[in-house]
Design a protein around this nucleic acid. Sequence first.
DNA 1: AATGAATGAGGCTTCATTCAT
DNA 2: GATGAATGAAGCCTCATTCAT
Lengths: 201, 201, 201, 201
Amino acid sequence: MVQILKKERKERIKHAALSEFMLKGFLNASMRKIAQNAQISTSNLYNYFNSKEKLFYSITDGVYDIINNLIRDLMRTEKEIGREYFFEQVSNLIAQPIRDLIKNHREEFLLIMEGSQGTKYENFQEELVVVIEKHFTEHLHAIENTETKDLADTFIFHILARNLLEGLLEISRHYINDKWVDYNVQALMKYHVLGMSQFFQ
Amino acid sequence: MVQILKKERKERIKHAALSEFMLKGFLNASMRKIAQNAQISTSNLYNYFNSKEKLFYSITDGVYDIINNLIRDLMRTEKEIGREYFFEQVSNLIAQPIRDLIKNHREEFLLIMEGSQGTKYENFQEELVVVIEKHFTEHLHAIENTETKDLADTFIFHILARNLLEGLLEISRHYINDKWVDYNVQALMKYHVLGMSQFFQ
Amino acid sequence: MVQILKKERKERIKHAALSEFMLKGFLNASMRKIAQNAQISTSNLYNYFNSKEKLFYSITDGVYDIINNLIRDLMRTEKEIGREYFFEQVSNLIAQPIRDLIKNHREEFLLIMEGSQGTKYENFQEELVVVIEKHFTEHLHAIENTETKDLADTFIFHILARNLLEGLLEISRHYINDKWVDYNVQALMKYHVLGMSQFFQ
Amino acid sequence: MVQILKKERKERIKHAALSEFMLKGFLNASMRKIAQNAQISTSNLYNYFNSKEKLFYSITDGVYDIINNLIRDLMRTEKEIGREYFFEQVSNLIAQPIRDLIKNHREEFLLIMEGSQGTKYENFQEELVVVIEKHFTEHLHAIENTETKDLADTFIFHILARNLLEGLLEISRHYINDKWVDYNVQALMKYHVLGMSQFFQ
DNA sequence: AATGAATGAGGCTTCATTCAT
DNA sequence: GATGAATGAAGCCTCATTCAT
């Protein structure tokens, strides 16, 4: 019974923290305000989480693992795909786990991507962009064609990688319902797949 | 002569402030550090700018106007464009002033877009996205076609608007030289124009 | 059986407390850390000891008594000693119990002497020095000689008393083994007895 | 005029800080209490000294240099002394600068020796003891005699080195007046020179 | 006996800003 | 215009201790 109460309170704190972190970002979030919103004293807050950072990680560590696993899975399955209709297939493979991510963890996803300055995750967004970018250019390199090889060194793929990620973030930001997510993730994927296919004849 | 000296000092302050604001954002920027970098006392800083906010605006108000004018101009000229080759024309019309913006004010541009949390400009980025989005959908509405009219209510254009803006921010973030900007702005525009033209046959 | 367990736990706490007190001193020692090292909860710690001070005294009261008894014994036996070869005799009489003190309670000895700031023992060290000093000067007074009587009012005996005590502390601090203690206590005593005998012809 | 006031206030702060540091040591000294005793607000205290450590160093850095110079000078002059009557000469050479140290900076001297735990000077006392000890043993090594060479590796010289230093600290602690210092430093030196001469025939 | 929850005071420090000179 | 002095609020965090269970 006590443990249940405790867990409930811990959840209340994490909820208050999520709000504050989302609103202000890690750096500008205030432990005082989190405590106030959770209706406990500031010092008591530290009985639940030893530091602002620990509290932040208690919220974001989960999503971090999910995203990493998602990427690892994609890398694995991608090698088993033939080069024909590559983008269509990847798009399908990607779409499902991404939709799940947004459906189940969109707030934490936004937090780790946008509000993590000052934490160990502050470079995670950029790292993700680079990983996505690499996928694009490596595929271009695979196509034996002098023209495309030059393209592969171009900054445009960095932008497109960021656009892809930003699109998902924008969907998360304006979340309406799960069906809506499905539709828009699909549309976003399709858009970029078609757009990029101009580089691969 | 005194006035020249004073102006020079004011510029020195603004330069120091820009660095600090870019590095930390408005909320986490420190007036002390700005004063230190400008090599004046903190209290003297207040003889030049009455508050942190005013100092911020002295840097960002200019870009704010430039961006707004840029958009107003686009709205005006757009109506004079025929519907054929619309995107190509818009792309050309847009590209030039945007390149100038990035070439001449990329730091202030990034600042008002990314570092303005806590100021009156904190929602400017989202407002811009909405304006751009409206341009897209209004044009769709103009095309009398049931299919496209449904599309116009879709969130995909919001995403694309953000992608366009984010692309420009990413170019600004990684700025190398003016020619490089030209190339990438052009490429970005072309990519999105081609991508979007799928919605307009 | 329960009592045995409890006693064992109480000892575990005292052991953890001794470490923490030795490391940080009374004032900077943390009840939290003591509890952690004793592997119990902080609140449970208070079921065994009502306060940080009580816990401290549970460790140091013993040595306090030992030292006091040691001094009382010395005072008693001293009166039975003839004035000839006084120092040699005292040295022998003193050396043995002091060696025992260091062998058996050197940590508590160091703690009450060096780490008791903020407790009722914080002046114990200085008090001890004064007691030792008195022994020296009273003996000088006993010698009917104007010269030595002047000397007796001199601060030099205060210094020597402190040197004696500090020597013992230094031996305790760098403790290697019992034999090593024997050797160094003996050497220290001999040094000071010889040095002091210059005042008593 | 303002500057004079400012300097006076800075001195008032340093005075209040010296008292607090002497009473509690660096670690347990409270910036709040220092500010209260200096009759300024805690935040204003930070306009004069950037941190507790800087404040501490503003008091102790001077003595640190003085002591180091004192030791350097001694090392230099010592080599010019003949081996006969070595201790008497050294005693005289040492006595004067040490008396000056105690006369002019006894509080800072005590502070850096006893209250510096938690600062960069926390090992200074032990380092000094080791330097003094080395002087003793190196001199023993210089005397070609198997007996004394064994002695030189003995811990007793470490104790005597500490005793010498502790004697000076005790004189500083109980300071009465300059003449009193002169007398007692002399007596202390003489005592240890005579005591130690037993090792050098 | 054992523990989680709770607290108020205090720790050092930075903040933007104001004021008198 | 320039500066040092001053401040109150707030930043994160630790403390010893108490209380209900």
